[in-house]
């Protein structure tokens, strides 16, 4: 099977979704590829904290703004406003409840107006129909002893495109290269 090329960074001016255990890596890889200011919107009660020392290998923590919202509705309102303003290149929003068609479509329109990207981190199986692409990212164990050290300590990821409005689906194995700060495609051994 001939593998199509990875559609990354994602299409500008659209809303995308990502799920799975590697969603954080995907979000930071996108932020790094996109450059510029990033706004991370989350609900106040979220326990998992992103660690600036951890994602400093992807992007400069100075470029990341956090926004704590009281509820998902408020988080969506903030996301929409930030997208519309065009002041940030990427808005990442963590969602816990499924999005309705209206909310999904509003995010699309806002992203289009501000020429920025919306990336929703969703729980598995809760995608909205309005999303441009949906990815499932899972970490993958690399049997090759040295590969991890060569890339400077990063996880081999399996990125699966499970929804694409304007293209084909696919599966890619990628790894973040710390030294060059870019995504490296990997052909997994034994696949």
């Amino acid at each position: 099977m001939v593998q199509s090329s990875l559609p990354f960074p994602l299409v500008e001016g659209r809303a995308h979704e990502v799920c799975g255990a590697g969603a954080y890596s995907f979000a930071f890889a996108l932020a790094a590829a996109r450059g510029g200011q990033v706004l991370w919107v989350r609900e106040t009660w979220e326990v998992a904290r992103v660690n600036p020392d951890g994602f400093a290998t992807f992007m400069d923590p100075a470029d990341l703004l956090l926004c704590n919202a009281q509820s998902q509705l408020e988080a969506l309102a903030v996301t929409e406003e930030a997208l519309r303003s065009g002041a940030v290149a990427l808005v990442i929003v963590s969602l816990t409840k499924p999005l309705g068609l209206t909310e999904g479509r509003r995010l699309q329109l806002a992203a289009k107006e501000g020429k920025s990207i919306a990336l929703a981190l969703i729980p598995e199986g809760m995608g909205s129909n309005a999303a441009e692409t949906r990815w499932r990212c899972t970490p993958h164990f690399d049997a090759d002893e040295c590969a991890n050290d060569r890339a400077g300590d990063s996880t081999l990821q399996r990125w699966e495109l499970i929804k694409n409005k304007s293209g084909t689906l696919g599966v890619w194995y990628v790894r973040w290269d710390r030294a060059s700060r870019r995504l490296a495609m990997v052909s997994p051994a034994g696949k």
Partner: peptide
């Protein structure tokens, strides 16, 4: 301006940085 505008919605303390 974006921070100010979001601040009127969620409170200025809730827009944070590392």
């Amino acid at each position: 301006d974006l921070i100010s505008r979001l601040g009127t919605r969620v409170g200025l303390e809730n827009i944070q940085r590392f």
